[in-house]
Design a binder for these strands. Structure first.
Lengths: 126, 126
DNA sequence: CAGTATCCAAGAAGATACTG
DNA sequence: CAGTATCTTCTTGGATACTG
């Protein structure tokens, strides 16, 4: 791929920015993080809150987030097993920068939509 | 899929947050945005600055960013054509929220790496 | 209830070669 | 120089069925 050690702020796998963006950039992580910001949720509760997600993706996203130390998984050994997921202290800290981006998205969504239409019109006409 | 109009803050295609995260979440957009934050770059200069990216992906990422109104493409009709890309005013505004995330990534990268190793050790041993 | 396992389809992205 | 075109591979994610 690329010769190592010659980039301004690195593209290789150790890049912290890549690390983070790869996580929050996936299809479900931010939704889950946002959901858990309102308190702990059980597996099935999360699925009800985000109906689009499949069990497979919900499990996987929970796992990835847990692996990164952003959420914590607690198993209650009841007769039908019950599990809940909640943000860790580390997980809480990402909410603010994330909110900054969400806020930006809401503020500029119209501008983006407008830009897209203009661009598409121009390139269609051309 | 999901019945429309019953979600807390919506998962459908119109969701502004999805819109933004899909863009900054892809493999190259943030790298490009960061690169252009230091000033306009020509196509070939961008390729030199980010050696991992292929022409194909560079072109496509530039296009997507241009379509969203975050960057501007200028063609100088010189003998060998020359093109440069620079942030628009809108593009500039995303730098700050993005920087917030980058800062978070840098601050907590060690914690994340540590969490990953711990998680992997535990699940391996189990 | 909370998953796991398997299979499959669609999209993202790399390699390579060619063009105005 | 700044791309396009094409082909192939890799990754993501959805559907379905089964389990402790």
């Amino acid at each position: 791929m690329s010769a190592p050690g010659e980039l301004p702020w690195s593209l290789d796998t150790a890049c912290p920015v890549r690390d983070v963006l790869d996580r929050i950039g996936d299809k479900w992580s931010t939704l889950i993080l946002n959901l858990l910001s309102s308190g702990p949720h059980r597996f099935s509760a999360a699925q009800r809150a985000i109906p689009d997600i499949s069990k497979r993706m919900l499990t996987q996203t929970f796992r990835d987030l847990e692996r990164d130390g952003l959420i914590e998984r607690t198993v209650y050994p009841t007769k039908p097993p019950s599990v809940d997921y909640r943000l860790t202290a580390l997980g809480e800290t990402i909410l603010e920068p994330l909110a900054g981006l969400v806020h930006w998205a809401e503020r500029h969504h119209d501008a983006i939509r407008h830009a897209r239409h203009t661009f598409d019109d121009v390139t269609d006409t051309a």
